[in-house]
Design a protein around this nucleic acid. Structure first.
Length: 504
RNA sequence: GGGCUGUUAGCUCAGCUGGUAGAGCAGCGGACUUUUAAUCCGUUUGUCGUGGGUUCGAUCCCCGCACAGCCCA
Protein backbone atom coordinates (compact mmCIF):
# COMPACT_ATOMS: atom_id res chain seq x y z
CA UNK A 1 0.00 0.00 0.00
CA UNK A 2 2.99 2.29 -0.40
CA UNK A 3 1.21 4.23 -3.11
CA UNK A 4 -1.54 5.12 -0.70
CA UNK A 5 1.07 6.53 1.65
CA UNK A 6 1.85 9.28 -0.82
CA UNK A 7 -0.29 12.38 -0.73
CA UNK A 8 -2.47 12.54 -3.77
CA UNK A 9 -1.22 15.40 -5.85
CA UNK A 10 -3.52 18.14 -6.97
CA UNK A 11 -5.47 16.04 -9.41
CA UNK A 12 -8.66 16.75 -7.52
CA UNK A 13 -10.61 19.72 -8.73
CA UNK A 14 -11.47 20.96 -5.28
CA UNK A 15 -7.99 20.83 -3.80
CA UNK A 16 -7.09 24.02 -1.98
CA UNK A 17 -4.27 25.43 0.10
CA UNK A 18 -5.96 24.48 3.37
CA UNK A 19 -6.05 20.86 2.28
CA UNK A 20 -2.48 20.98 1.00
CA UNK A 21 -1.40 22.20 4.43
CA UNK A 22 -3.29 19.38 6.14
CA UNK A 23 -1.82 16.76 3.82
CA UNK A 24 1.63 17.98 4.78
CA UNK A 25 0.70 17.63 8.44
CA UNK A 26 -0.57 14.12 7.83
CA UNK A 27 2.64 13.25 6.02
CA UNK A 28 4.60 14.30 9.11
CA UNK A 29 2.28 12.26 11.34
CA UNK A 30 2.74 9.18 9.14
CA UNK A 31 6.49 9.60 9.44
CA UNK A 32 6.21 9.37 13.22
CA UNK A 33 4.32 6.06 13.35
CA UNK A 34 0.73 4.86 13.16
CA UNK A 35 -1.23 7.77 11.72
CA UNK A 36 -4.68 6.20 12.16
CA UNK A 37 -4.63 4.35 15.51
CA UNK A 38 -7.71 2.29 16.34
CA UNK A 39 -6.93 1.07 19.85
CA UNK A 40 -8.67 3.81 21.84
CA UNK A 41 -12.04 3.09 23.46
CA UNK A 42 -13.80 6.09 24.96
CA UNK A 43 -15.54 5.26 28.23
CA UNK A 44 -17.72 8.37 28.50
CA UNK A 45 -20.10 10.35 26.32
CA UNK A 46 -20.31 14.12 26.47
CA UNK A 47 -24.00 14.23 27.36
CA UNK A 48 -23.56 11.69 30.15
CA UNK A 49 -20.81 13.80 31.70
CA UNK A 50 -23.05 16.87 31.62
CA UNK A 51 -25.91 14.87 33.13
CA UNK A 52 -23.75 13.39 35.86
CA UNK A 53 -21.52 16.32 36.82
CA UNK A 54 -23.16 19.37 35.30
CA UNK A 55 -24.92 20.38 38.50
CA UNK A 56 -21.89 20.13 40.80
CA UNK A 57 -19.69 23.11 41.56
CA UNK A 58 -15.96 22.98 41.17
CA UNK A 59 -15.29 22.96 44.91
CA UNK A 60 -16.74 19.47 45.13
CA UNK A 61 -15.99 18.34 41.56
CA UNK A 62 -12.28 18.88 41.19
CA UNK A 63 -11.19 17.33 44.52
CA UNK A 64 -13.24 14.23 43.64
CA UNK A 65 -10.63 13.56 40.94
CA UNK A 66 -13.05 11.86 38.52
CA UNK A 67 -11.09 10.27 35.68
CA UNK A 68 -12.88 10.09 32.32
CA UNK A 69 -12.04 9.32 28.71
CA UNK A 70 -13.75 10.70 25.64
CA UNK A 71 -13.33 10.80 21.88
CA UNK A 72 -14.82 13.01 19.22
CA UNK A 73 -14.36 15.61 16.57
CA UNK A 74 -12.66 18.90 17.47
CA UNK A 75 -15.17 21.63 16.60
CA UNK A 76 -13.59 24.64 18.31
CA UNK A 77 -10.03 25.38 19.37
CA UNK A 78 -8.72 28.26 21.43
CA UNK A 79 -4.98 28.41 21.99
CA UNK A 80 -3.77 30.89 24.62
CA UNK A 81 -0.07 30.45 24.93
CA UNK A 82 0.72 27.62 27.28
CA UNK A 83 -2.89 26.53 27.75
CA UNK A 84 -5.76 25.82 25.34
CA UNK A 85 -9.40 24.94 25.18
CA UNK A 86 -10.85 22.58 22.61
CA UNK A 87 -14.48 21.61 22.11
CA UNK A 88 -15.01 17.96 21.30
CA UNK A 89 -18.22 16.71 19.69
CA UNK A 90 -19.35 13.10 19.98
CA UNK A 91 -22.65 11.42 19.14
CA UNK A 92 -24.24 12.72 22.31
CA UNK A 93 -23.10 16.34 22.31
CA UNK A 94 -20.12 18.48 23.17
CA UNK A 95 -17.58 18.61 25.98
CA UNK A 96 -14.78 21.10 26.51
CA UNK A 97 -11.17 20.04 27.01
CA UNK A 98 -8.63 22.08 28.95
CA UNK A 99 -5.16 21.31 27.67
CA UNK A 100 -2.03 22.81 29.19
CA UNK A 101 1.62 22.42 28.34
CA UNK A 102 2.20 21.69 32.01
CA UNK A 103 -0.09 18.65 32.10
CA UNK A 104 0.66 16.98 28.75
CA UNK A 105 4.26 18.02 28.12
CA UNK A 106 5.84 20.37 25.63
CA UNK A 107 6.19 17.96 22.69
CA UNK A 108 2.56 16.86 22.69
CA UNK A 109 1.36 20.39 23.36
CA UNK A 110 3.26 21.66 20.34
CA UNK A 111 1.78 18.85 18.26
CA UNK A 112 -1.73 19.71 19.45
CA UNK A 113 -1.26 23.30 18.35
CA UNK A 114 -0.91 22.04 14.79
CA UNK A 115 -4.05 19.91 14.90
CA UNK A 116 -7.05 21.26 13.04
CA UNK A 117 -10.73 21.68 13.60
CA UNK A 118 -12.41 18.57 12.29
CA UNK A 119 -9.70 16.23 13.55
CA UNK A 120 -10.88 13.26 15.62
CA UNK A 121 -9.24 13.29 19.06
CA UNK A 122 -9.16 11.12 22.15
CA UNK A 123 -8.62 12.50 25.63
CA UNK A 124 -8.33 11.32 29.21
CA UNK A 125 -8.39 13.51 32.26
CA UNK A 126 -10.24 14.82 35.28
CA UNK A 127 -13.63 16.47 35.28
CA UNK A 128 -13.72 20.07 36.57
CA UNK A 129 -15.47 23.35 36.03
CA UNK A 130 -13.82 26.47 34.65
CA UNK A 131 -14.20 29.77 36.43
CA UNK A 132 -17.05 30.64 34.08
CA UNK A 133 -18.79 27.43 35.15
CA UNK A 134 -18.37 25.25 32.07
CA UNK A 135 -17.94 21.55 32.70
CA UNK A 136 -14.60 20.53 31.19
CA UNK A 137 -11.93 17.85 31.25
CA UNK A 138 -8.45 18.74 32.48
CA UNK A 139 -6.56 16.66 29.98
CA UNK A 140 -3.65 14.46 31.01
CA UNK A 141 -3.58 12.26 27.90
CA UNK A 142 -4.37 13.41 24.37
CA UNK A 143 -4.21 11.59 21.03
CA UNK A 144 -4.99 12.33 17.42
CA UNK A 145 -7.05 9.41 16.12
CA UNK A 146 -7.97 10.66 12.66
CA UNK A 147 -6.53 13.55 10.70
CA UNK A 148 -9.20 15.51 8.83
CA UNK A 149 -8.05 16.75 5.45
CA UNK A 150 -11.02 18.88 4.48
CA UNK A 151 -11.89 22.11 6.27
CA UNK A 152 -15.30 22.22 7.92
CA UNK A 153 -17.84 24.95 7.18
CA UNK A 154 -17.49 28.23 9.01
CA UNK A 155 -17.75 27.59 12.74
CA UNK A 156 -20.41 30.17 13.52
CA UNK A 157 -22.72 30.27 10.50
CA UNK A 158 -22.32 26.58 9.71
CA UNK A 159 -23.58 25.16 6.46
CA UNK A 160 -26.33 27.25 4.87
CA UNK A 161 -26.28 26.06 1.28
CA UNK A 162 -29.26 23.69 0.93
CA UNK A 163 -27.69 21.86 -1.97
CA UNK A 164 -24.54 21.03 -0.01
CA UNK A 165 -26.61 20.01 3.00
CA UNK A 166 -28.39 17.43 0.83
CA UNK A 167 -25.45 16.28 -1.27
CA UNK A 168 -22.93 16.11 1.57
CA UNK A 169 -25.15 15.05 4.42
CA UNK A 170 -22.08 13.91 6.36
CA UNK A 171 -20.96 17.53 6.59
CA UNK A 172 -24.46 18.71 7.44
CA UNK A 173 -24.63 16.18 10.28
CA UNK A 174 -21.26 17.28 11.65
CA UNK A 175 -22.17 20.94 11.82
CA UNK A 176 -25.98 21.18 12.08
CA UNK A 177 -27.52 20.11 15.34
CA UNK A 178 -31.04 20.61 14.00
CA UNK A 179 -30.31 18.17 11.18
CA UNK A 180 -29.06 15.62 13.69
CA UNK A 181 -32.17 16.15 15.81
CA UNK A 182 -34.45 15.66 12.81
CA UNK A 183 -33.00 12.25 12.03
CA UNK A 184 -32.93 11.23 15.68
CA UNK A 185 -36.62 12.15 15.77
CA UNK A 186 -37.21 10.11 12.62
CA UNK A 187 -35.69 7.06 14.29
CA UNK A 188 -37.91 7.59 17.34
CA UNK A 189 -41.01 7.99 15.18
CA UNK A 190 -40.35 4.76 13.30
CA UNK A 191 -39.57 2.96 16.56
CA UNK A 192 -42.79 4.28 18.10
CA UNK A 193 -44.87 3.16 15.15
CA UNK A 194 -43.26 -0.28 15.17
CA UNK A 195 -43.89 -0.57 18.89
CA UNK A 196 -47.49 0.54 18.46
CA UNK A 197 -48.07 -2.07 15.77
CA UNK A 198 -46.40 -4.88 17.69
CA UNK A 199 -48.42 -3.86 20.74
CA UNK A 200 -51.58 -4.36 18.71
CA UNK A 201 -50.67 -7.89 17.71
CA UNK A 202 -49.41 -7.09 14.24
CA UNK A 203 -46.70 -9.24 12.71
CA UNK A 204 -43.86 -7.39 10.99
CA UNK A 205 -43.06 -8.85 7.58
CA UNK A 206 -40.91 -8.12 4.56
CA UNK A 207 -42.26 -8.65 1.06
CA UNK A 208 -40.51 -8.34 -2.30
CA UNK A 209 -39.05 -5.07 -3.52
CA UNK A 210 -38.57 -6.58 -6.99
CA UNK A 211 -41.90 -7.32 -8.60
CA UNK A 212 -42.57 -9.25 -11.78
CA UNK A 213 -45.82 -7.26 -12.06
CA UNK A 214 -45.99 -3.81 -10.46
CA UNK A 215 -49.17 -3.41 -8.45
CA UNK A 216 -50.94 -2.07 -5.40
CA UNK A 217 -50.98 1.56 -6.50
CA UNK A 218 -51.49 3.80 -9.50
CA UNK A 219 -47.98 4.98 -10.36
CA UNK A 220 -45.22 4.61 -12.91
CA UNK A 221 -42.63 2.03 -11.84
CA UNK A 222 -38.87 1.85 -12.25
CA UNK A 223 -38.01 -0.96 -14.61
CA UNK A 224 -35.00 -3.18 -14.12
CA UNK A 225 -33.72 -6.48 -15.43
CA UNK A 226 -32.79 -9.77 -13.81
CA UNK A 227 -29.87 -11.26 -15.72
CA UNK A 228 -29.98 -14.91 -14.66
CA UNK A 229 -33.72 -15.19 -15.16
CA UNK A 230 -33.47 -12.90 -18.18
CA UNK A 231 -36.67 -11.14 -17.25
CA UNK A 232 -37.88 -7.61 -16.77
CA UNK A 233 -38.64 -6.68 -13.19
CA UNK A 234 -40.11 -3.65 -11.50
CA UNK A 235 -39.11 -1.86 -8.32
CA UNK A 236 -42.21 -2.04 -6.21
CA UNK A 237 -44.67 0.84 -6.16
CA UNK A 238 -46.54 -0.66 -3.17
CA UNK A 239 -46.46 -3.84 -1.08
CA UNK A 240 -50.25 -4.10 -0.94
CA UNK A 241 -50.90 -7.18 -3.04
CA UNK A 242 -48.25 -9.21 -1.20
CA UNK A 243 -49.47 -8.18 2.22
CA UNK A 244 -53.01 -9.22 1.30
CA UNK A 245 -51.68 -12.61 0.15
CA UNK A 246 -50.41 -12.94 3.74
CA UNK A 247 -53.90 -12.20 5.06
CA UNK A 248 -55.15 -15.00 2.81
CA UNK A 249 -52.39 -17.12 4.34
CA UNK A 250 -53.87 -16.53 7.76
CA UNK A 251 -51.55 -14.07 9.44
CA UNK A 252 -54.58 -11.79 9.99
CA UNK A 253 -52.53 -8.77 11.16
CA UNK A 254 -49.39 -7.80 9.26
CA UNK A 255 -47.41 -4.63 8.66
CA UNK A 256 -44.34 -3.62 6.71
CA UNK A 257 -42.23 -0.48 6.98
CA UNK A 258 -40.19 -0.21 3.84
CA UNK A 259 -39.41 1.66 0.68
CA UNK A 260 -41.60 2.18 -2.37
CA UNK A 261 -40.27 3.46 -5.67
CA UNK A 262 -42.23 5.65 -8.03
CA UNK A 263 -40.85 6.94 -11.28
CA UNK A 264 -42.19 10.45 -10.97
CA UNK A 265 -40.90 13.96 -10.50
CA UNK A 266 -39.22 15.24 -7.38
CA UNK A 267 -40.64 18.03 -5.27
CA UNK A 268 -40.82 19.16 -1.65
CA UNK A 269 -43.28 16.29 -1.14
CA UNK A 270 -41.91 13.64 -3.51
CA UNK A 271 -38.74 11.59 -3.54
CA UNK A 272 -38.43 8.72 -6.05
CA UNK A 273 -38.00 6.31 -3.15
CA UNK A 274 -39.98 6.90 -0.02
CA UNK A 275 -40.93 4.98 3.09
CA UNK A 276 -44.42 3.70 3.76
CA UNK A 277 -45.91 1.72 6.53
CA UNK A 278 -48.66 -0.50 5.23
CA UNK A 279 -50.75 -2.61 7.56
CA UNK A 280 -53.65 -5.03 7.13
CA UNK A 281 -55.99 -6.30 9.80
CA UNK A 282 -58.54 -9.04 9.17
CA UNK A 283 -62.08 -8.56 10.49
CA UNK A 284 -61.77 -4.77 10.49
CA UNK A 285 -63.05 -2.13 8.10
CA UNK A 286 -62.21 1.42 7.06
CA UNK A 287 -63.92 2.94 10.09
CA UNK A 288 -61.79 0.86 12.41
CA UNK A 289 -58.73 1.87 10.38
CA UNK A 290 -59.45 5.57 10.81
CA UNK A 291 -59.55 5.25 14.59
CA UNK A 292 -56.45 3.08 14.59
CA UNK A 293 -54.42 5.29 12.25
CA UNK A 294 -55.26 8.32 14.32
CA UNK A 295 -54.03 6.62 17.48
CA UNK A 296 -50.88 5.44 15.78
CA UNK A 297 -49.99 8.93 14.55
CA UNK A 298 -50.73 10.42 17.94
CA UNK A 299 -48.48 7.85 19.61
CA UNK A 300 -45.68 8.67 17.18
CA UNK A 301 -46.02 12.40 17.89
CA UNK A 302 -45.86 11.90 21.62
CA UNK A 303 -42.88 9.55 21.31
CA UNK A 304 -40.90 11.97 19.16
CA UNK A 305 -42.01 15.34 20.48
CA UNK A 306 -43.63 14.62 23.82
CA UNK A 307 -46.92 16.16 22.74
CA UNK A 308 -49.55 15.88 20.04
CA UNK A 309 -50.01 19.66 19.86
CA UNK A 310 -47.29 20.86 17.50
CA UNK A 311 -46.22 23.79 15.46
CA UNK A 312 -45.69 23.31 11.74
CA UNK A 313 -44.12 26.12 9.72
CA UNK A 314 -45.27 28.73 12.18
CA UNK A 315 -48.83 27.46 12.48
CA UNK A 316 -50.39 25.34 15.20
CA UNK A 317 -51.16 21.75 14.36
CA UNK A 318 -53.28 19.86 16.84
CA UNK A 319 -53.13 16.09 16.50
CA UNK A 320 -54.62 15.54 19.95
CA UNK A 321 -58.27 16.09 18.94
CA UNK A 322 -60.37 13.56 17.01
CA UNK A 323 -59.65 13.91 13.30
CA UNK A 324 -62.44 15.41 11.18
CA UNK A 325 -64.27 13.26 8.64
CA UNK A 326 -65.70 14.71 5.43
CA UNK A 327 -66.92 13.29 2.15
CA UNK A 328 -65.35 14.57 -1.05
CA UNK A 329 -68.44 16.60 -1.90
CA UNK A 330 -68.73 17.75 1.71
CA UNK A 331 -65.14 18.99 1.64
CA UNK A 332 -65.73 20.94 -1.57
CA UNK A 333 -68.83 22.53 -0.08
CA UNK A 334 -66.96 23.46 3.06
CA UNK A 335 -63.81 24.89 1.48
CA UNK A 336 -65.20 26.16 -1.83
CA UNK A 337 -68.74 27.13 -0.77
CA UNK A 338 -69.68 28.72 -4.10
CA UNK A 339 -70.84 25.43 -5.65
CA UNK A 340 -74.39 24.10 -5.46
CA UNK A 341 -75.15 20.40 -5.06
CA UNK A 342 -76.70 20.47 -8.56
CA UNK A 343 -73.42 21.77 -10.02
CA UNK A 344 -71.37 19.22 -8.12
CA UNK A 345 -73.41 16.37 -9.60
CA UNK A 346 -73.39 17.80 -13.14
CA UNK A 347 -70.61 16.12 -15.13
CA UNK A 348 -70.55 18.73 -17.88
CA UNK A 349 -70.32 21.52 -15.32
CA UNK A 350 -67.51 19.74 -13.48
CA UNK A 351 -65.52 19.22 -16.67
CA UNK A 352 -65.88 22.88 -17.58
CA UNK A 353 -64.96 23.97 -14.07
CA UNK A 354 -61.86 21.76 -14.05
CA UNK A 355 -60.74 23.30 -17.31
CA UNK A 356 -60.62 26.64 -15.51
CA UNK A 357 -58.03 25.08 -13.22
CA UNK A 358 -56.12 23.76 -16.20
CA UNK A 359 -57.16 20.16 -15.59
CA UNK A 360 -58.19 18.03 -18.56
CA UNK A 361 -60.07 15.02 -17.18
CA UNK A 362 -59.83 11.65 -18.92
CA UNK A 363 -62.58 11.05 -21.45
CA UNK A 364 -63.85 8.02 -19.50
CA UNK A 365 -63.83 9.83 -16.13
CA UNK A 366 -67.08 9.36 -14.22
CA UNK A 367 -68.86 11.67 -11.80
CA UNK A 368 -66.83 10.52 -8.81
CA UNK A 369 -63.51 11.01 -10.57
CA UNK A 370 -64.54 14.52 -11.64
CA UNK A 371 -65.65 15.40 -8.11
CA UNK A 372 -62.35 14.09 -6.78
CA UNK A 373 -60.41 16.20 -9.28
CA UNK A 374 -62.33 19.30 -8.23
CA UNK A 375 -61.70 18.46 -4.59
CA UNK A 376 -57.98 18.31 -5.31
CA UNK A 377 -58.11 21.72 -6.96
CA UNK A 378 -60.25 23.54 -4.43
CA UNK A 379 -60.19 21.91 -1.00
CA UNK A 380 -57.19 19.64 -0.55
CA UNK A 381 -54.57 22.28 0.13
CA UNK A 382 -56.78 23.87 2.80
CA UNK A 383 -57.06 20.73 4.92
CA UNK A 384 -54.60 21.91 7.58
CA UNK A 385 -56.06 20.15 10.59
CA UNK A 386 -56.07 16.38 10.26
CA UNK A 387 -59.05 15.43 8.11
CA UNK A 388 -60.24 12.12 6.73
CA UNK A 389 -61.79 12.42 3.31
CA UNK A 390 -64.15 9.51 2.67
CA UNK A 391 -66.35 8.04 -0.08
CA UNK A 392 -63.79 7.69 -2.85
CA UNK A 393 -65.25 6.71 -6.22
CA UNK A 394 -64.88 3.08 -7.20
CA UNK A 395 -63.31 3.96 -10.55
CA UNK A 396 -60.18 5.37 -8.86
CA UNK A 397 -60.11 2.69 -6.15
CA UNK A 398 -59.62 -0.62 -7.94
CA UNK A 399 -58.56 -2.51 -4.80
CA UNK A 400 -61.17 -1.15 -2.39
CA UNK A 401 -64.47 -2.69 -1.33
CA UNK A 402 -67.54 -0.92 -2.70
CA UNK A 403 -70.09 0.53 -0.32
CA UNK A 404 -73.10 -1.70 0.32
CA UNK A 405 -75.45 1.27 -0.07
CA UNK A 406 -73.86 2.85 -3.16
CA UNK A 407 -71.87 0.71 -5.62
CA UNK A 408 -70.29 3.85 -7.13
CA UNK A 409 -68.27 4.64 -4.01
CA UNK A 410 -65.88 2.64 -1.89
CA UNK A 411 -65.24 2.26 1.83
CA UNK A 412 -62.07 4.27 1.51
CA UNK A 413 -60.43 7.30 3.12
CA UNK A 414 -57.41 9.45 2.67
CA UNK A 415 -55.97 11.42 5.55
CA UNK A 416 -54.86 14.98 4.88
CA UNK A 417 -52.79 17.10 7.26
CA UNK A 418 -51.34 20.55 6.46
CA UNK A 419 -52.86 20.17 3.00
CA UNK A 420 -50.92 17.01 2.24
CA UNK A 421 -51.93 13.39 1.90
CA UNK A 422 -50.47 11.41 4.78
CA UNK A 423 -52.38 8.14 4.69
CA UNK A 424 -54.71 6.12 2.48
CA UNK A 425 -56.81 3.21 3.65
CA UNK A 426 -59.86 1.17 2.88
CA UNK A 427 -61.95 -1.90 3.48
CA UNK A 428 -60.22 -4.35 1.17
CA UNK A 429 -61.95 -5.85 -1.80
CA UNK A 430 -62.08 -9.59 -1.02
CA UNK A 431 -64.50 -10.65 -3.76
CA UNK A 432 -62.17 -12.43 -6.24
CA UNK A 433 -64.59 -12.10 -9.14
CA UNK A 434 -65.12 -8.39 -8.55
CA UNK A 435 -61.36 -7.90 -8.23
CA UNK A 436 -60.77 -9.72 -11.52
CA UNK A 437 -63.33 -7.47 -13.21
CA UNK A 438 -61.68 -4.35 -11.73
CA UNK A 439 -58.28 -5.49 -13.01
CA UNK A 440 -59.76 -5.98 -16.47
CA UNK A 441 -61.11 -2.42 -16.33
CA UNK A 442 -57.63 -1.21 -15.35
CA UNK A 443 -56.03 -3.03 -18.24
CA UNK A 444 -58.56 -1.39 -20.56
CA UNK A 445 -57.72 2.01 -19.09
CA UNK A 446 -54.01 1.33 -19.59
CA UNK A 447 -54.65 0.42 -23.22
CA UNK A 448 -56.64 3.64 -23.55
CA UNK A 449 -53.56 5.61 -22.52
CA UNK A 450 -53.59 5.77 -18.72
CA UNK A 451 -50.00 4.74 -18.03
CA UNK A 452 -50.60 4.72 -14.28
CA UNK A 453 -53.38 2.14 -14.53
CA UNK A 454 -52.80 -1.28 -13.00
CA UNK A 455 -51.83 -4.62 -14.54
CA UNK A 456 -53.82 -7.83 -14.21
CA UNK A 457 -52.23 -9.88 -11.43
CA UNK A 458 -53.42 -13.46 -11.93
CA UNK A 459 -51.65 -14.85 -8.87
CA UNK A 460 -53.31 -12.26 -6.66
CA UNK A 461 -56.69 -13.26 -8.04
CA UNK A 462 -55.80 -16.91 -7.39
CA UNK A 463 -54.98 -15.98 -3.78
CA UNK A 464 -58.32 -14.20 -3.36
CA UNK A 465 -60.08 -17.23 -4.80
CA UNK A 466 -58.92 -19.21 -1.76
CA UNK A 467 -60.79 -16.64 0.30
CA UNK A 468 -59.52 -13.56 2.12
CA UNK A 469 -61.36 -12.64 5.30
CA UNK A 470 -62.92 -9.17 5.39
CA UNK A 471 -59.96 -6.91 5.99
CA UNK A 472 -59.01 -3.30 6.48
CA UNK A 473 -55.70 -2.01 5.12
CA UNK A 474 -53.90 1.33 5.27
CA UNK A 475 -50.65 2.96 4.22
CA UNK A 476 -49.02 5.80 6.11
CA UNK A 477 -46.38 7.93 4.41
CA UNK A 478 -43.56 7.90 6.90
CA UNK A 479 -41.51 10.67 5.30
CA UNK A 480 -44.44 13.05 5.24
CA UNK A 481 -45.35 12.15 8.81
CA UNK A 482 -41.76 12.84 9.88
CA UNK A 483 -41.96 16.19 8.07
CA UNK A 484 -44.99 17.13 10.19
CA UNK A 485 -43.48 15.97 13.43
CA UNK A 486 -40.10 17.64 12.86
CA UNK A 487 -41.42 20.89 11.36
CA UNK A 488 -39.54 20.20 8.11
CA UNK A 489 -40.69 22.07 4.99
CA UNK A 490 -39.26 19.61 2.45
CA UNK A 491 -39.20 15.82 2.20
CA UNK A 492 -35.47 16.22 1.48
CA UNK A 493 -35.03 17.44 5.03
CA UNK A 494 -36.19 14.08 6.42
CA UNK A 495 -34.39 11.76 3.97
CA UNK A 496 -30.71 11.35 4.75
CA UNK A 497 -29.61 11.09 1.14
CA UNK A 498 -32.31 12.60 -1.08
CA UNK A 499 -31.98 12.04 -4.79
CA UNK A 500 -30.39 14.86 -6.73
CA UNK A 501 -29.16 15.28 -10.26
CA UNK A 502 -25.46 14.47 -10.60
CA UNK A 503 -23.21 17.34 -9.65
CA UNK A 504 -22.26 19.55 -12.54
C1' G B 1 -42.85 21.06 -18.42
C1' G B 2 -43.49 26.78 -17.07
C1' G B 3 -42.11 31.08 -13.94
C1' C B 4 -39.00 33.56 -10.32
C1' U B 5 -34.38 33.64 -7.70
C1' G B 6 -29.48 32.05 -6.86
C1' U B 7 -24.26 30.18 -8.23
C1' U B 8 -17.95 35.28 -6.16
C1' A B 9 -11.76 32.24 -1.59
C1' G B 10 -12.39 25.78 1.95
C1' C B 11 -17.09 28.21 4.69
C1' U B 12 -20.55 32.71 5.51
C1' C B 13 -21.23 36.83 2.55
C1' A B 14 -20.16 42.14 0.20
C1' G B 15 -19.02 43.95 -4.65
C1' C B 16 -22.53 51.11 -6.69
C1' U B 17 -26.52 48.56 -14.29
C1' G B 18 -18.89 48.05 -17.12
C1' G B 19 -12.25 49.66 -15.58
C1' U B 20 -9.96 41.91 -14.65
C1' A B 21 -12.22 41.48 -6.87
C1' G B 22 -13.11 42.45 -0.87
C1' A B 23 -14.52 41.35 4.57
C1' G B 24 -15.14 37.82 8.54
C1' C B 25 -14.10 32.76 9.68
C1' A B 26 -10.61 28.81 8.41
C1' G B 27 -5.11 28.51 7.06
C1' C B 28 0.11 30.30 7.87
C1' G B 29 3.79 33.29 11.28
C1' G B 30 3.93 35.73 16.15
C1' A B 31 1.96 37.24 21.52
C1' C B 32 -1.01 35.16 25.36
C1' U B 33 -2.02 29.48 31.50
C1' U B 34 -9.60 29.58 32.59
C1' U B 35 -11.40 30.67 26.99
C1' U B 36 -16.74 30.53 25.10
C1' A B 37 -17.76 32.43 17.50
C1' A B 38 -11.43 33.78 22.69
C1' U B 39 -8.51 38.27 21.76
C1' C B 40 -4.39 41.14 19.52
C1' C B 41 -0.42 41.94 15.46
C1' G B 42 1.20 40.35 10.60
C1' U B 43 0.03 37.40 6.22
C1' U B 44 -1.48 33.68 2.00
C1' U B 45 -5.58 32.01 -1.04
C1' G B 46 -9.98 33.14 -6.59
C1' U B 47 -11.08 29.48 -14.18
C1' C B 48 -16.32 35.34 -10.12
C1' G B 49 -21.01 27.95 -12.23
C1' U B 50 -20.21 27.08 -17.71
C1' G B 51 -20.14 28.24 -23.19
C1' G B 52 -20.93 32.12 -26.51
C1' G B 53 -22.03 37.42 -27.68
C1' U B 54 -21.78 42.99 -27.13
C1' U B 55 -17.61 46.25 -25.77
C1' C B 56 -11.19 49.21 -26.12
C1' G B 57 -12.46 46.52 -21.61
C1' A B 58 -17.46 42.02 -18.56
C1' U B 59 -18.24 39.26 -11.77
C1' C B 60 -21.54 43.28 -13.66
C1' C B 61 -25.11 43.93 -19.95
C1' C B 62 -27.41 40.02 -23.68
C1' C B 63 -28.23 34.70 -25.23
C1' G B 64 -27.63 29.43 -24.44
C1' C B 65 -26.43 25.48 -20.96
C1' A B 66 -25.67 23.08 -16.01
C1' C B 67 -26.99 22.63 -10.96
C1' A B 68 -29.91 24.30 -6.89
C1' G B 69 -33.98 26.70 -4.03
C1' C B 70 -39.03 28.42 -4.16
C1' C B 71 -43.77 28.77 -6.71
C1' C B 72 -47.04 26.77 -10.50
C1' A B 73 -48.73 22.52 -13.77
Amino acid sequence: MSEAQQPIEATQQDENHVMAERREKLKAIRAQGVAFPNDFKPEHAAADLHAQYGEQDNETLEPANVQVSVAGRMMLKRVMGKASFATLQDKSGRIQLFISKESIGEALYDAFKKWDMGDILAARGVVFKTKTGELSIKVSELRLLTKSLRPLPEKFHGLSDQETKYRQRYVDLIVSDDTRQTFIARSKIVAAIRSFMLGNEFLEVETPMLHPIPGGASAKPFITHHNALDMQMYMRIAPELYLKRLIVGGFERVFEINRNFRNEGVSVRHNPEFTMMEFYAAYTDYKWLMDFTENCIRAAAIAARGTAVLEYQGRTLDLSQPFQRLTIVGAIQKYAPGYTLEQLTDMAFLRAELKKFGVEAFAHAGLGALQLALFEETAESQLWEPTYIIDYPVEVSPLARASDSNPEITERFELFVTGREIANGFSELNDAEDQAARFHAQVAAKEAGDDEAMYYDADFIRALEYGMPPTGGCGIGIDRLVMLLTDSPSIRDVILFPHMRPEA
